[in-house]
Amino acid sequence: MDHAAHSEVEPVSRKRPPRKSLLLTRKSPLIDIAQLIAFVGVLVWLILAGAQAMEYNWQWYRVDRYIYRIIDGEFIPGPLLRGLGVTIEITFYSMIITLVISLATALLRLSGSVSGRLVATVYLEAIRNTPLLIQLFLFYFVLAPIIGIDRFWAGVLCLAFFEGSFGAEIIRAGLQSVPRGQYEAADAIGLTRRDRLRFIILPQAIPLILPPMTGLVISLIKHSAILSVIAVAELTTQGLDLISETFMAFEIWFTVGAIYLVITVSLSLLVSWIEHRAAIGR
């Protein structure tokens, strides 16, 4: 009655209105695809036109041998693949050290110890407010000779300390997002500080820490290119060397960029797949 009177004035449909895309509202995916093609087309045309204007001599057919060759049925990785191997190695070791530094710094920052907090703060401010390149020079020219490590480990350590400053904040945020009641309940059943961290806090913080940490691995891969400055034989260094040998700047840089892209994008996809699985598992 009341309801009927009301719906006469303004009929209410119970059907859900169509979903709106949050970013762009457009009718057909075809338009999307057309725009993408147009965009890529213009980009390619610009590059080709530019190359033509400078009379660039494209030699794509020469590139594959620098990635890999097959001689007598045997797979021989070329300089670029070997460089990628070193990049992955750097990333692997740096990431392990980054995790240790991050956790230690985060715990120091959250600790009751004044000197501990001071050390952590000085480290964070120093790393964040100086250029990565200068840090690299300090590690390579100053620290490495003092503690007797080679350029590879100097680079790995430098990257680890750099990314560690970001990792520390990620871990700190993760630890702080575990509610206070969890700390108190752990205390109330008599867990030591270590057990509390190990059995209660970290297991709840890690799912929150993991996604941004993978972002950190991705930036580690990208930042590792800077080690070419101290001639660690990673992917970018190999690219530089190849170009000075072959003068194929366009082809090599596109290839090197594509290799980085493949690695980082597949890492992101892997992570979103893991997150998706974890979300289902809940």
């Binding site: 009641g181 969890q182 108190e184 309940a185 752990a186 109330a188 059995f199 209660i200 297991p203 709840q204």
Partner: peptide
């Protein structure tokens, strides 16, 4: 505790 504070994991 008022809010139980069980360990959810």
């Amino acid at each position: 505790f008022q809010h139980f504070n069980l360990f959810p994991h």
